[in-house]
Amino acid sequence: MRIACLAVVLSLWAVVAPAYELEDHSRIDGTGPRVLRILSTADLDVFAPYLDAFHQAYPQITLDYAVASSSELHRAIREDASFDLVISSAMDLQFQLVNDGYARSHESVLADALPVWARWRDQIFAFTTEPAVVVISTERFAGLSIPATRQELTAILRDHPERFQGAVGTYDVRESGLGYLFATQESRATDAYWRLSEVMGRLAPRLYCCSSAMIDDVLSGRLALAYNVLGSYAADRLARGSGGRLQILRMTDFSNVILRTAFITRSAEEPEAAGWFLDLLLSIGLRDTPGPWPLPPVGDGSEDLGSVFGPIRLGPALMVYLDPLNRQAFLSEWLDAIEQH
């Protein structure tokens, strides 16, 4: 009998337990019964000001904020997990979800105010533009010239293997959707990427899941250099005080700029509240002045982003590298370059 009960509980658990992993979770209780469920890749400490702003504007709504990696988020939505709003910096995965019909339309004045490249089909909307940057440890770079292009960076890494052995960090593109997006877009834009990857591969690079972990390790001195880090996180860390141990570099030859996007899910139970939250994000994204927000505004797509190429375009082409065959081919090439020992 007892065993039977346990079996029932276990089987129920198997049904109830989500098939995706959450990294973090937070809840702000509202005065009313309505709950807005948000699934996001943005770390809680980065996103807390946005949640607070929404709570102040709509105190009646309870906010349920879950953080997951971009690939877990992708899987969760594909499995129709019950979330109302989905926020992610992995544009390609976000776009594929919308293309495959997991989003619903949202129309508002703010949505119309967005530049055309920052939205697609009234369904997916960008509220930040964030460049990929290189973060270096000033201590470990002491005495070296600061590289401005990939070529210079490649040369420095090649010329000082002893200094950078095991001290170079970058995304593990097999795990991180954002890392994969950066890598594929960069490989498409410049052949310097593969040369750099090969040089990094010889230095036994450390591979990471997320920007924040990379920045942490640069800060602690474990890493001399973190390649392809989300500029907004690095700037946020710099602003919170790094004791001068951190420096952000923008590659002038080419720099990826991604759009952090949000959409309301097709299965949303609170589409109205999700629309309010989305509009709040857009109003913050469309601001002219920097303000207290940790994430940069949408801007006009060219200014002060360290790139003449503009942000990665929201469009079906983003799905090309998500194709399993293409992904397989890219990953094997990447592994060949990055794992040489």
Binding site: N99, G101, R121, G315, P316, A317, M319, V320
Partner: peptide, 21 residues
């Protein structure tokens, strides 16, 4: 073997905001 070329989809994205399969 097959490699989806980037241009095959970017040309579809260039004319309209339509879903692609």
């Amino acid at each position: 073997r097959l490699e989806l070329p980037y241009s095959a989809f970017s040309m579809l994205g260039a004319i309209s905001e339509d879903r692609v399969f």
